[in-house]
Design a binder for these strands. Structure first.
Lengths: 249, 249
DNA sequence: ATTATCTATAGATCTATAGATAATGC
DNA sequence: ATTATCTATAGATCTATAGATAATGC
């Protein structure tokens, strides 16, 4: 199982990913159906394609990455890719959705927690921290894909953008609720908080980002909105833990 | 004169751009040397190429933009581009340098001001505000080019990256000086502040960003570093104005 | 029989160069 | 004579498809 697959399994249990994972498990059981590779076989082809594509898209962009590059890195021939994906853009789409979906699901749980009477500042802190932790531990700094120009523009990714927008509007709504500052509306609050959360992306390009940095960034989201140290401490203390929300220990 | 040329003229007077601008002025004097275009001639070809490329690179990335697209938008034939630029990547390089250079020069002036005894928090505020104002008023949200994956990776742009790094290290140095928070080193401070400044980029994708938002973002850079409202007000009051630094009224 | 891979390639690009052409300037 | 443009194209891609091949499974 590749790093990517393990990551997905961790966050996506019980979601859309199940079908894929079940198929993977089956494939592992029976031995080697189909023509063997020219090179040696090292794992699950589909995951290897996604993994290779992630690395290359992040480094070189979509247009700068050819199907041949991807195939080479995955250890297969270029044409074999099309057995798994109908088009190059579909690989990127799957990478994007796999990455944003767990963030969004965490967001929805925290949102529900707030609707049930939870403190909005605590919810904002919990959401930011959860998101930062995903971005900093995801394989290959994959969130760098979010900001590819093609993803922003191309119609092929509208579905993905809708998921992102939902997350950002949670940030905006919570942010506008808790800020004591005049002049910060939902749009601005959402952009500032989201942008701070995503500071993990450039930070990771220079090396690993630890959990202490994650907490500083998450608190920074409250600071930038003008909360004073007492309010921040209270929010941190009141924030729900991952476990208390998921219900899986 | 295109929007891009006017922008450059405004910020770059006295810099490398002078040569280009002088050439432009000359060209304007004598009438129409060289073979006329198939379409009508609308302005300075070189600037039109840069302008067209900026729009397309931002929207579609480097790999997603062909020389034919650029030429078409600039109103010339594809091959004519090569009279002005030896390669596609050179167009992007010039766009990048034109945009970061004025920010960096403002940064150096403010840095000098601080070395001469200016308050570091005030310097940080002034630098952030100046930078945000450039990014929000530059033509075509051109700062979106900074984050193209090719620019991060390709050796062709190392020179540009050095300029960016210098700016970020100013942020980091000032930030680490002024923050009362433990656990924020230069690297983290630089990344957080730079990232906040660049929140203009996504904000502009949804519409114009006004000067009030710019001030909120610049103050946000101090807030995220843990400065209290009194310290922020003091920094804003003590910040040097653009005019006091440039010496050109 | 089914599946995953392979080889080979059609068709559509795309970048950059070569060399012709149509203006102005001396 | 100089310059900026044009047309045409070589050469090098790149994506996606067609169809052969080599394994397992029934």
């Amino acid at each position: 199982m590749t790093e990517l697959a393990a990551y997905s399994a961790c966050w996506e249990a019980g979601s859309v990913m199940d079908g894929i994972l079940r198929r993977v498990a089956q494939t592992t059981k029976r031995r080697n159906p189909g023509r063997p590779r020219a090179d040696e076989v090292t794992g699950e082809t589909r995951e290897e394609i996604l993994d290779a594509a992630a690395v290359l898209f992040i480094k070189q962009g979509l247009g700068g990455t050819t199907t041949r590059h991807i195939a080479e890195r995955a250890g297969i021939r270029q044409a074999t890719m099309y057995h798994y994906f109908a088009a190059k853009a579909d690989i990127l789409l799957e990478l994007l959705e796999r990455t944003v979906r767990p963030s969004l699901e965490a967001g929805r749980r925290i949102w529900q927690w707030m609707l049930d009477g939870g403190d909005p500042a605590a919810a904002l802190y919990a959401l930011a921290l959860s998101d930062v932790n995903m971005l900093r531990t995801a394989p290959h700094n994959i969130a760098a894909l979010y900001i590819l120009p093609e993803v922003r523009a191309d119609e092929h990714y509208t579905q993905f953008r809708a998921l992102r927008d939902e997350l950002q509007s949670m940030y905006g709504d919570l942010g506008a609720q808790v800020t004591p500052l005049p002049g910060i509306n939902e749009e601005l609050a959402g952009a500032l908080v989201m942008q701070l959360v995503e500071s993990v992306i450039p930070l990771r390009q220079d090396g690993d980002v630890g959990p202490e940095a994650a907490r500083i960034i998450a608190k920074g989201c409250l600071r930038v909105l003008g909360l004073d140290p007492a309010a921040i401490a209270a929010a941190v203390a009141a924030a729900p833990s991952e476990e208390s929300l998921t219900g899986r220990v």
